[in-house]
């Protein structure tokens, strides 16, 4: 299957490992992966701040780069939500509305694509470790994808996945909220960091790079050992060591 993989702006600028890992996982699962180099951003930062015209300008600039036939896989539940839920509004009344709708209809978050569309359980193995999965609000409440990422992680041998005490509570990122109210946003992240540490997590895993930046950034500032990893990175590593294990055997 031919797949367009878009690591999104955060992925390209700040987390290059996320897109690279997603590409390797999808390739191992038999996909032929293309990356839309000219795609920049879905417009969400400005859209969520009420600057709709600026959001439109950016989204309209990116739209042509995303036009294709096969599934469009994003390394972000949040950007997937922007396409699937808000592009309709953002492009309404514009000449690009039809083209935007066609792109939106193809948009899938990485975990959902692997579990639902490919019907795959990538499996693999890791050295014994304990992790928690952090639900991003968009994954959980907009896309209703609570189980898909957990199923991906549960298929990994050696990984003990624990539930946070308050998995449904926002980590305080909220896009520009994190810049408008940095102290408040950090206080919210603290609760998430504490929750993960109390559950004995060695690292946390997320489907959104914004949450990852928020929680890991706060943990880093506090100097507590709680690295964050994008879900495809964990799956990729597990697959790779699973393959090595198979070779050794």
């Amino acid at each position: 299957m031919r797949v367009t993989l878009w690591p999104t702006c955060l992925g390209r600028q700040l987390f290059p490992g996320a897109g690279a890992a997603a590409r390797r996982v999808l390739t191992r699962l038999g996909c032929e992966v293309d990356e839309p180099r000219a795609a920049v951003c879905c417009g969400q930062p400005a859209y969520n701040s009420g600057h709709t015209a600026d959001a439109y300008r950016v989204a309209a600039g990116t739209l042509p780069a995303l036009e294709d036939d096969g599934p469009l896989v994003l390394c972000s539940g949040s950007c997937t939500t922007m396409l699937a839920r808000h592009w309709d509004d953002l492009f309404s009344g514009s000449e690009l509305a039809g083209r935007a709708a066609a792109v939106s209809a193809r948009a899938r978050d990485f975990a959902s694509f692997v579990v639902r569309d490919l019907g795959a359980e990538p499996r693999g193995m890791l050295e014994p470790c304990v992790a928690v999965y952090h639900d991003s609000c968009h994954m959980l409440r907009s896309l209703k994808e609570r189980d898909e990422p957990r199923r991906l992680l549960a298929s990994i041998e050696g990984l003990e996945l624990r539930e946070l005490t308050a998995p449904e509570r926002c980590c305080g990122f909220g896009g520009t909220f994190s810049l408008r109210y940095p102290e408040l946003s950090s206080a919210m992240a603290d609760e998430k960091v504490d929750d993960a540490l109390e559950r004995g997590a060695e690292f946390f895993c997320a489907s959104d790079l914004g949450c990852l930046m928020q929680i890991a950034g706060r943990a880093g500032e506090r100097g507590v050992g709680l690295p964050g990893r994008y879900i495809a990175e964990v799956v990729d590593q597990a697959q790779a060591s699973g393959e090595r294990g198979a070779d050794d055997g």
């Binding site: 590409r23 180099r37 950090s186 880093g220």
Partner: peptide, 16 residues
Amino acid sequence: KGRSFPGFTRSASSKE
């Protein structure tokens, strides 16, 4: 203010 930052990547592309 309260969080470290992962930093810009050296390559704008996530090409492996």
